[in-house]
Simulated scan of single mutants.
Amino acid sequence: MTPPPAAEASASDLLGAALGGAARRAGLDPAEGASTGHVVWAAMGGWRGVLESVLPGLVFIVVYTLTIDPDTGEGDLWLSLGLSVGIAAVFTAARLIARQPVTAAIGGLIAAGVAAAFAAFTGEASNNFIPGFITNALYGSAFLISALIGWSLIGLAAGFLMGEGTAWRADKRKRRVYFWLAIAWASLFAARLLVQLPLYFADNVTALGTLKLVMGLPLFAPLVAVTWLAVRALYPRGESNEVTAAE
């Protein structure tokens, strides 16, 4: 195999380090030997992470649905948005007070705020979901493109975590596994768009919000587990240490 140009290799190393670092902070380090359940739970951030991810959106859709006016068919947009953003702000404040990592909470607050801004400025509750569509499209495209050009984002992250950099590209088995893992993640984001966009255009806010929750963590968690198990299977116990020691 022809080695990649130095600039390309350097860029891939930097990207791999960034992705691997993010995965490690999320508890997704195959070299640690943690159980699958522990890894998935860590990736979701535990109970607090689950609540921070789910509760703002759940409150929005529940309040909006419960306040729908039979005559207009619309719910109380401002109350729904206010409570949703307010809950995200409470989570962030709680982490700040407890001096805990606030990255996830701040990310949730920003996401809730941006989504609320879309809905508030247009007066359309369904526009609260536009940022999510954009995020899914960007993530899905990134995973798909990385797979098609042979530089799977999963492979870059795993290569950094396992101490082999981009050496996995010389292994056909690893390249094949990382290709399909990237395709699987791209498919998840594509499925969300395929299912949710028709509901958006139909202005079915209740169904859209419900399916967004259903296609969130319930699909994310199993795919994290599959990805982690697949990566672990590629590296027999102790192999990562041997690779690192040989470098």
Rank of each mutant, 00 (worst) to 15 (best):
T2E: 14
A7K: 06
A9C: 03
A11M: 08
S12E: 14
S12N: 13
D13Y: 12
G16Q: 00
G21V: 03
A23H: 08
R24M: 06
A26M: 11
S35M: 08
G37F: 12
G45Q: 04
W47I: 14
G49S: 03
S53W: 12
L55N: 01
G57D: 02
I61K: 02
V62K: 03
V62G: 03
T65H: 11
I68C: 09
I68K: 15
P70A: 11
D71C: 00
L77N: 09
L77K: 04
W78L: 14
S84P: 02
S84N: 10
V85K: 06
G86M: 06
G86Q: 09
G86D: 03
I87V: 15
A88T: 04
T92K: 01
T92R: 03
R95H: 11
L96F: 14
I97N: 06
R99Y: 06
T103A: 13
A105G: 02
I106N: 04
G108K: 04
I110W: 06
A116P: 01
F118S: 04
F118G: 00
F121D: 00
G123L: 09
G123T: 10
G123I: 08
A125Y: 10
S126T: 13
N127S: 07
N127M: 12
I130D: 06
T135S: 13
G140K: 08
L144G: 10
L144H: 10
L144F: 14
L144I: 06
I145W: 14
I149E: 13
W151R: 15
W151D: 12
S152D: 05
L153C: 05
L153R: 09
G159L: 02
G159P: 07
G159R: 00
M162N: 13
E164I: 09
A167D: 12
R169H: 03
D171V: 12
K172R: 14
K174T: 09
K174D: 06
R175L: 12
W180H: 12
A182M: 03
A182R: 04
A182F: 00
A184F: 05
S187E: 03
F189A: 11
A191T: 15
V195D: 03
Q196R: 08
L197A: 13
L199D: 05
L199G: 08
D203V: 05
A207P: 01
A207C: 08
G209H: 04
K212C: 12
K212G: 15
L213A: 04
G216C: 05
L217V: 14
F220N: 01
P222L: 10
P222D: 07
L223I: 09
V224A: 04
A225G: 02
T227I: 10
L229N: 08
Y235L: 04
E239P: 01
V243N: 05
V243R: 13
